[in-house]
């Protein structure tokens, strides 16, 4: 079984770069949204990077993922074009979805990214379908549903655990428990335990530290290998935390006064990653600093080009409703 600590230097640099890209992307969107430059709703993934990257490092284009309304991180981790994503969030014609989807519907099916989703809990059934495709056509692919603690209470998710089991699908349900469904704590809203729910449906289950890239990477390797080899579906539950509110503009009055500051100081997945790789001398600080600088420049460039890009024209309003009509 692959272990995160056995990753090559190059692979570790890729993992770090993806996590850093997600962080800078989200920080920048936060800044730009606050400045009034971005329309609509955005939900930021900063703080949860270890989950998306820890899983998606194992995947290729034949594998599918479904995301949540908090979908930027999963999209970047699965290989969506970052500049195209930024343009999409700005509603530009050359955005990843032509400016028709926006933050909540970023998708790129060619990369196996089945979309962020505006409907909480909608991803799990879709992933059963993607897993069915892989199984029926024999592609060897797997399908992963990222779902929050909020979405975990939807019937769709629980029905999908059952369907994945009875159809014996190469599916994995990753419950990203960031502690809050909107403003309501998962300690209140979730009855029983997430892992016990999985066991109740006969899924293989794992509990993992969602702040630790290496722990996630190792559990992901096991679950994905199980799915690829015909061993059936799994559920992975992890505790993690978001640095921002449910949506941008959320004053987060439901959180403790020092909660986010403490998170950033003690449980930041990027900091934990840096400590781990520099302590073991696999990478040095300068390697990571170089990535930090390069990513900062890349994201700045994405914002600048998004602002300069053209808006869709009126003639784009009615295209793409159907393949043919």
């Amino acid at each position: 079984m692959a272990s995160g600590l056995q990753l090559s230097r190059e692979e570790l640099l890729v993992a770090y770069r993806r996590m850093r890209t997600i962080r800078d992307f989200e920080d920048k969107v936060h800044e730009e949204f606050s400045a009034g430059n971005i329309p609509g709703f955005v939900h930021l993934y900063a703080g949860e990077e270890a989950s998306a990257v820890g899983f998606c490092m194992h995947l290729d284009d034949r594998d599918a993922i479904a995301s949540t309304h908090r979908g930027h991180g999963h999209s970047i981790a699965k290989g969506c074009d970052v500049e195209g994503m930024m343009h999409e969030i700005y509603g530009r014609k050359d955005g990843l979805c032509g400016g028709k989807g926006g933050s909540m519907h970023i998708a790129d099916l060619s990369k196996g990214m089945l979309g962020a989703n505006g409907i909480v809990g909608a991803g799990a059934p879709l992933i059963c379908g993607a897993a069915l495709t892989a199984k029926t056509l024999g592609t060897g692919g797997v399908a992963i549903c990222f779902v929050g603690d909020g979405g975990s209470n939807q019937g769709t998710t629980l029905e999908s655990y059952n369907l994945a089991k009875v159809w014996d699908l190469p599916a994995i349900f990753v419950v990203e428990d960031n502690g809050y469904a909107e403003s309501t704590a998962s300690s209140w809203s979730v009855g029983g335990s997430q892992v016990d729910r999985g066991k109740g449906f006969g899924l293989a289950t794992h509990e993992v530290d969602g702040f630790d890239f290496f722990a996630v990477f190792d559990v992901a390797a096991e679950a994905i290998e199980r799915a690829r080899s015909g061993g059936g579906p799994s559920l992975v539950h992890m505790k993690l935390a978001r640095h921002y509110g449910h949506f941008e503009g959320d004053a987060m009055t439901y959180r403790a006064a020092d909660e986010v500051a403490a998170l950033k100081a003690e449980s930041d997945p990027l900091t934990i990653f840096r400590q781990r790789v520099t302590e073991t001398a696999i990478l040095n600080g300068a390697d990571l600093d170089e990535i930090d600088g390069a990513v900062r420049t890349e994201i700045e460039g994405c914002v600048a080009s998004a602002k300069a890009a053209a808006m869709p024209a009126e003639s784009d309003l009615l295209t793409d409703v159907y393949v043919s009509y």
Partner: peptide, 8 residues
């Protein structure tokens, strides 16, 4: 899907 994902 088709509309939200820009015709893809």
């Amino acid at each position: 899907f088709r509309y939200m994902f820009g015709g893809k």
